[in-house]
Structures are given as C-alpha cells and as structure tokens.
C-alpha cells in the first residue's frame, strides 16, 4: 500500500513538470514579457524605458533559459525559467502585478472558498441522492419518466441563469439575504446561504440523473435479485443493499473533486462578491495578471493529481476486492 502511494506520487512528478513546461511556453515564449508589459502599460505611447522598467521591477528582464552574463551555476539558475517557473514547485508564487504576495493572498482566500464549496458539495450530495432514490423507487413508472425529463430540463438551463435569477428573486425581490459581499466568522452564514442554495439547485439536474443511473445499474445485478427472492421488503432491498453498494461509485466520484474544492467556484464567487480563490482567478484573468493565472494553473493541477491518488486509495478502502499492485 505504502509502496503504491509512493509510486503514484513519483508518477505525478513528470506530469507536473509537463504542466510547468506548458505554462512556461504559454506565458513566456509565445507571449514574451515585452508583450505583457505593453498590455499592462497600455498599447500605445509606451516608451522602451517604461517597458524595461516594468520588466526589471518584476524580474522579467532576465534571459529565458540561459544567462551567459552570470557566473557559474547561475548561468542556468538566474533565468526566468528557474526563477518564475520552477519556483512553483516550491510553492513560491512570487508577486502579482500590483506587488502583492500571491502565496499570502491564496492562503487568505482559501477559507471563504471552502465556506462556500463544502456546504454545496455536502448538501448537494444529500439532495441528489434523495431525489435519485425517490426516482429509483418509482422506476419504470410515470414518476420516473417525468423525473428524468425534469432533470434534463434543469440540466439545459445555464448556470448563469440560476445565479442571476436566484440573486434577483431571493436577494432583490424578497430581500431575505444580502445580494453580495462577505464577512468572516459567524456572519459569513448570511452571505453564503444564497450562493449555496443556488449552487445546490444548479447541480440537481445532472446529479440526480447520474445517481439514478448508478442505482438502476445496481438494481439490475444478481445479488439484488437474490435479495428479492429471499423475500426481503422493498425498503430493505433498496436501502440496505442497493444504497450501500451504490455508494462506492458515488463516493469515489466525490473523492476526486475534494482537493479541487480549494479552488472555489469561479462564477458563483465573483457574482456574489465572495473573496475566495475563484473570484481571485477571475479578477486576475480580467486584469490580465499572468503571474496569478500561472500560480493558479499549477495549484489546480497539483490538487487534481492529489484527487486522483486519493480516488485510487479510496477504491481499496471501500471495496476489498480491489488490490493495489
């Protein structure tokens, strides 16, 4: 088990190097620091001195890969590639274009992101499983048929409409909660409740439909027929046998997204003014702050790979038949 985990982690290293090279290529080779400076300083009437100044302040004035002016090892280390790209492996994200420390901002913004993402995940899971179970109980009846059609209808609505509609209806017309904003501590509750509701409702369509498929697949299996044949009641079969076994694919599906919860939700956060990592990313994209985007891309892939490893481990925990070789 331990050997397996170590091997998986070693396998993650080349992937992260690949991600790193890709971002280096996108942000420094295709898109030179000169271009970046020109975008930030305004397209026209930029003097070469202003560009050189901008680059020096942010350390972008070094050569990309090979610094022939530097002595010894620094020929390689005193370059943009090492200082800006490889440094991400040490989680040294450097400074944003406005001079703030990115690592500090990320730490500050993780908590609000989680305050939104964790309730959405948990409540969503509960609601979706309940609905899916309900539909599965009434399988092959009109309840099932119309339940699925309702799911497809809910899935066909863009998440933006849920957000705009919900914000308008609950925040503006009924005035139950503040429209947007955030506050630490216990006050966070009243700011987070509306985005959580909207996040859950937005996921009902696809979630319920997906879990229904899992339940129905499970119901078609041999052990369920055996359970019926033994004369167990419907309730016992569905809740003790089907639900328990269907939890394996459901939970392993959840594990893979767990680490990514830190990244927050891009659109909901920025709509409701929650200062999490999602709105941080959106702001960075809008102000074309490449240092932040680069840091978030790297962080996102690290979290995704952790999620994959956790999924593999959780398979062995919930299903003893799976052996890790």
């Amino acid at each position: 088990m331990l050997a397996y985990i170590v091997r998986r982690m070693l396998y993650a290293i080349p992937i992260l190097i690949g991600v790193n090279l890709l971002t280096f290529l996108l942000f420094f080779v295709v898109n030179t620091p000169d271009n970046m400076a020109r975008m930030q300083l305004g397209m026209k009437h930029v003097t070469p001195e202003a560009i050189a100044n901008w680059k020096r302040e942010r350390g972008y004035d070094k050569p990309l890969l090979f610094n022939s002016a530097a002595p010894g090892v620094e020929k390689f280390s005193d370059t943009i590639f090492v200082e800006k790209s490889l440094a991400l492996f040490a989680f040294e994200f450097g400074q944003a274009d406005d001079g703030r420390d990115i690592a500090y901002d990320i730490k500050q913004r993780m908590l609000p992101s989680l305050a939104l993402a964790v309730p959405v995940l948990l409540i969503g899971l509960l609601v979706n499983i309940t609905f899916a179970m309900l539909v599965a109980v009434f399988r092959a009846t009109y309840v099932d048929l119309w339940g699925v059609i309702l799911c497809v209808i809910l899935m066909s609505i863009s998440s933006l409409f849920y957000i705009i509609g919900g914000q308008y209806l609950i925040g503006k017309v009924l005035q139950l909660v503040p429209i947007s904003g955030y506050d630490g501590g216990i006050d966070a509750f009243k700011f987070v409740i509306l985005p959580v509701i909207i996040g859950v409702i937005g996921g009902i369509g696809s979630g319920t439909r997906w879990y229904r498929t899992i339940f129905l697949e499970e119901i078609g299996k041999d052990y369920v027929r055996t359970a019926w044949a033994k004369g167990l009641t419907e309730r016992k079969v569905l809740f003790k046998h089907v639900l328990k076994n269907a939890m394996i694919p459901i939970l392993t599906g959840v594990v893979v997204v767990l680490p990514l919860l830190f990244m927050g939700s891009l659109v909901i956060e920025s709509f409701f003014g929650i200062p999490g990592l999602g709105s941080y990313t959106i702001d960075a994209i809008n102000s074309q702050d490449f240092a932040i985007v680069r840091a978030m891309v790297f962080l996102g892939s690290v979290l995704y790979i952790i999620g994959l490893i956790l999924t593999d481990i959780s398979y062995t925990l919930v299903d003893p038949r799976v052996r890790l070789a």
Partner: peptide
C-alpha cells in the same frame, strides 16, 4: 494526463489570454 490535470477553465483562460495579446 498532463493536459487534463490542468483545470479546464484555467487552461482555456491561459490560452485565450495569450491569443488576445497576439
């Protein structure tokens, strides 16, 4: 695996930003 390990929106954003500058 490398491509899919980057969160989709971020990869798209990174590429579109690059394109925009170009």
């Amino acid at each position: 695996t490398t491509l899919s390990s980057i969160p989709g929106v971020l990869l798209i954003a990174a590429m579109v930003l690059t394109l925009q500058v170009y």
